[in-house]
Design a protein around this nucleic acid. Structure first.
Lengths: 203, 203
DNA sequence: ACTTTTGTTAACCATTTGGTTAAACCATGA
DNA sequence: TCATGGTTTAACCAAATGGTTAACAAAAGT
């Protein structure tokens, strides 16, 4: 019987995750991954056959983790507005914990758009996502948005791009004798919440 | 005397721009650039010495073009609010014309943060940027924002991320039987304008 | 005309890199 | 104890790739 999580396999996945998140599919080096994991390079191929297969494992688990934040949109204990607020919080917390995640996903999705469609399907299937929840709520009259798709894009943008472009914002802030730090994040969060309130109240 | 723009040099730069914008520094291939330009690979080195130097030329010109949008913040014919509105429009138009630009810049800035600081300095020096204009206006009492840095980040995020993550949004939209197209862009623009008005009027 | 400089090419080189192989290692059970 | 099968390693290989070279062509200078 094959062990699901032999120690070596796990070490490889952790090392691969670190390497791929930092350098992407092209930039990552198999030898580096082996070094990080403290094992021989041939073992990578023994366990995962080739670079792409290994990358796929890492990518899929990242994608899954990313979309899992959407779960809150199906939480029956919360009313609709609370769900949207909660989702924004979860996104901000998630990206604050894994700042490289957003850029990593975007880079790889852009690099291989066709392949990505299938993978997103897997993750969307069955789960409520923000957009489908918005369209649903709109149709049922729970909310009355100018354009749900636009609201969706704006909200995701405000939650995500600050982390994607953190290096850019940091440099520009410094050049203007101010800063972009954890306090700013707190205030960004507050501002996003009031954006949500403002938009959902417009009606 | 050296010709500023020998036809060959220009062809190479155009080809390099296309290749680098699509594949980035690592992904781009010198042979591909030569093929695109219809010349021998050795000529790339004859004109630009090596890959990094060639990339630098492309990168710097992209960065310059990006920051040139900020010029409008010094336009004396407009009042402050008009400038901010105008800037949002210029960014949206610019990114709509070169959709790969945003991701390209972010990718390369993240990959080589230290090097980038110097280059951004060159572009910021002397020119008014959105952030400095905001801080300035805030200090002079022209506007009264909760937090100028946060407003800055939110505005840039809403203008930029929709293009960065266009593949992602497109797929998600399709999976929900809606779409993310040029009409959406028009509505996004309107929504950003009302966001600006709302924020600048809060006081 | 002819010499010098600039532009261009095909062939070549060194290194990197993903991937393979054959042998060794090691646990387990007969 | 020793045969078996999964695990691990060092050495190796082929392809890709950035970069160089030497010879040649075209222009420019005299």
């Amino acid at each position: 019987m094959k062990l699901i999580d032999s120690s070596t396999e796990h070490k490889i996945l952790e090392a691969a995750k670190t390497e791929f998140l930092e350098f992407g599919l092209y930039g990552a080096r198999m030898q580096n991954i082996a070094n990080r994991a403290g094992i021989n390079k041939a073992l990578l191929h023994y366990y995962f056959r080739n670079k792409e297969k290994l990358f796929d494992k890492v990518f899929e688990s990242a994608l899954e983790r990313y979309f899992s934040n959407m779960d809150i949109m199906s939480d029956d204990r919360l009313d609709f507005k609370e769900r949207v607020h909660g989702l924004a919080d979860r996104f901000l917390d998630f990206l604050n914990e894994y700042p490289q995640m957003a850029l990593f996903l975007i880079k790889e999705v852009s690099a291989n758009q066709i392949l990505f469609i299938e993978k997103v399907d897997k993750n969307l299937r069955g789960n409520k996502t923000l957009l489908s929840a918005l369209l649903d709520a709109q149709q049922k009259g729970v909310v009355s948005l100018e354009n749900p798709m636009v609201f969706f894009v704006q909200l995701i943008s405000m939650c995500t791009y600050p982390f994607v472009a953190k290096p850019l914002f940091t440099v520009i802030a410094e050049r203007n004798e101010t800063s972009w730090n954890s306090d700013s994040l707190t205030e960004l969060r507050a501002s996003i919440h009031s954006f949500i309130d403002h938009q959902l109240n417009l009606a």
